[in-house]
Write a protein that binds this DNA or RNA. Structure first.
Lengths: 204, 204
DNA sequence: TTCTAAAATTGAGTCAATTCTGTTTTTGTG
DNA sequence: CACAAAAACAGAATTGACTCAATTTTAGAA
């Protein structure tokens, strides 16, 4: 039997996340009171804390969905990359960046990033690190693929290069979400300019 | 007249910072209560909030002192860099990293970084961005110097390269402070390995 | 069907950052 | 030396995340 209890649990999880996501967007992370989320989800405050360790973890659940979607979209690029190193990188990182504001506002990103450095050992902190690692792996996989195809030099340290590219993009993204007026197109252009140096060094 | 008021003000600032710095180190950022800081500094809670917008700004004042010291130490390297690109970068970034835990514990860094992304428009958030920019400028200055001396190719986009190097180092440093067991030596080695790709691309 | 242990829910209470309002101190002027 | 305005101070009150002891609900054994 799929269990009444299990069904209720899943349902409450969903209600909490939906209520929180709506409120985070409307009122911002700080502005969304746990009390309000509880009321909206029709559970008590205590129940929320039975499901999530703290407010950050609720946001964490939302962020995870977003990033997993991005990782999924990235798989296509790795499997079938554009025919030169510069475009391949730009396409993959472009997917990451373009998707980023689909479900999450800049303010939500700021909070999520802040929490992940503030509480690296909380459930969300750990999950966030895992997501970052997955993104690095995907970039590395792309580089490996380009090396296989013969578009990138084989004697390049692909592992270090993957980190370098990810770290730079991530830092640029952090600065991007810190400024409300920053535009996605400019972010992509700046990253392309930075990566050009790398592309010149590794393209065959 | 240097003003009684002005003198008292400076004195109170100093007392608050000293009390806070001691408590942050002893009890951690979260563990240090404003009430305790106020008692230690012999001022009231209200007065602390008259001097700093929030708890994070107090930490911010401490972080700023640290980073300014690092910037100062960096000037020497820029003026007189080691005779090859790899060592020059390693020396400058090495100074940043080695100094980093002088006054600030990893926990304090985590909090400071978290606050700077959480509240980019608070006094500290703005100051922190300014410090980052200053570090980027110093790395750019080093690259420009290396180009002048003829150790680095002139046709490299020094501006983008400086950002790239800083962003990568900063992200690595964030990961470093997130893991208490991470060691400085390993951090430097990892960054050196990443920069090797760049060094190969830009050294004459 | 009845009963009991385990699991989940509840919301009033705690704790600490921040705000707010009344009081005190400093300054500059007559 | 008053004195009034401005600046700074004090600490009680507010606010909101999180805890915990009591209560309710579910599962499944007899």
């Amino acid at each position: 039997m799929s269990g009444l209890r299990a069904r209720q649990k899943a349902d409450r999880h969903r209600r909490i996340i939906e209520a929180a996501a709506a409120l985070f967007r409307e009122a911002g992370y700080e502005g969304a009171k746990i009390e309000t989320i509880a009321a909206q989800a029709e559970v008590s405050i205590g129940t929320i804390y039975n499901y999530y360790e703290n407010k950050g973890d609720i946001l964490g659940a939302i962020v995870s969905m977003e990033v997993n979607e991005v990782l999924n979209a990235g798989r296509g690029v790795v499997a079938n990359p554009p025919a030169n190193v510069g475009d391949a990188l730009d396409t993959l990182l472009g997917i990451y960046i373009e998707h980023s504001l689909h479900y999450l506002s800049k303010e939500m990103w700021r909070q999520a990033m802040a929490i992940s450095t503030q509480l690296p050992d909380s459930p969300f902190g750990q999950a966030y690190s895992g997501l970052d690692r997955a993104l690095i792996e995907q970039i590395r996989a792309l580089i490996a693929r380009l090396q296989e195809i013969g578009l990138a030099r084989r004697d390049i340290d692909g592992s270090a290069l993957g980190e370098l590219i990810f770290n730079n993009m991530n830092m640029m993204f952090i600065e991007f979400v810190k400024r409300d007026e920053a535009r996605i197109a400019e972010l992509r252009a700046a990253i392309r300019r930075q990566n050009r140096i790398l592309v010149a060094a590794i393209a065959v």
